[in-house]
């Protein structure tokens, strides 16, 4: 064997074997199951079942709408917060406290965080009580079991990922670019849109990919905040594997989710690359 190949191969043998056996092989089993029926004959029947049914299209649409809105809202809230943390906070101790506040949710389970929102968003929850007492609404808002409720919980769970991705890009930004732009007479707004935003775009995109992929496949948060009224793709998948035990049909649903995720990741990566070259 080529001498230059022996070392890397020896070092990669164990990790690659582990991933082939416990990652690729199980995924292959799912894909094969999705292409066959209970009699183990090859068929595309499972996909026809998924894609020919209006209900599934609605679930797919809801899943995507929630994931896209979660990404958008996280970006709109995350950019200002990242900006504030990296460029506006003067007092170091307060900055440390802020970063800790940002990271604590990341270190707690989705369950715990969603549970907090179940308490807050309920009919008699803190939010409704406050709004009622303040005379802002006449009767409690229904938030649990609506897409708005799921969105509030999802943004909450995923926002820290966005803030860290953008914050890292902002903190690496070379101050001389902005100074040059300002020296050349650009107003702050123009400097932001023509200099800072394009330079932090890779961070924005990696944050968006992270948030979107986690949102589109999220199970716990939608399951807890939907109150059984709304279904997303991951909930259908879980149902097939945990109670219906139809691995063929569940496999087809899993492959649909996988494909959607990979297409979005590839698409976002492409935007990042073309903009990065420009």
């Amino acid at each position: 064997m080529n001498r230059g190949l022996r070392m890397p191969l020896a070092m990669l043998a164990a990790p690659l074997a582990f991933f082939v056996a416990f990652f690729l092989a199980p995924l292959a089993v799912v894909i094969l199951a999705s292409l066959s029926d209970t009699a183990n004959a090859w068929t595309l029947e499972q996909y026809v079942r998924v894609l020919a049914d209006r209900y599934h299209w609605e679930v797919i649409l809801v899943t995507f709408r929630i994931a896209c809105l979660t990404t958008l809202v996280s970006l709109l809230l995350g950019y200002p917060l990242a900006w504030y943390l990296t460029r506006m906070v003067r007092w170091r101790a307060w900055r440390r406290v802020c970063v800790i506040l940002l990271v604590v949710p990341m270190f707690t389970s989705n369950i715990v965080r969603s549970f907090g929102w179940m308490v807050l968003l309920g009919r008699k929850g803190l939010l409704n009580q406050t709004l009622l007492d303040g005379g802002l609404i006449d009767r409690p808002l229904r938030l649990l079991g609506t897409e708005t409720g799921i969105l509030i919980g999802m943004v909450y769970v995923l926002l820290p990922f966005m803030v860290l991705a953008i914050g890292n890009a902002l903190s690496r930004l070379d101050a001389s670019h902005e100074l040059a732009s300002a020296d050349l007479g650009a107003p702050p707004r123009a400097t932001f849109f023509h200099v800072i935003l394009p330079l932090t775009l890779p961070g924005v995109i990696s944050g968006c990919i992270m948030v979107f992929t986690l949102a589109v496949s999220a199970y716990v948060t939608p399951a807890l905040l939907s109150g059984g009224r709304i279904s997303v793709l991951s909930m259908l998948i879980f149902q097939q594997y945990s109670s219906v035990f139809d691995f063929h049909y569940g496999g087809a649903l899993s492959v649909v989710l996988l494909i959607f995720t990979l297409v979005m990741v590839g698409f976002a990566g492409r935007i990042g690359r073309t903009r990065g070259d420009a």
């Binding site: 799912v30 990919i209 594997y241 995720t261």
Partner: peptide
């Protein structure tokens, strides 16, 4: 980037 729920289901079946 892959959905954990899919991986969990895959490992269960496998």
């Amino acid at each position: 980037v892959l959905p954990h729920i899919v991986l969990g289901a895959a490992l269960l079946q496998f």
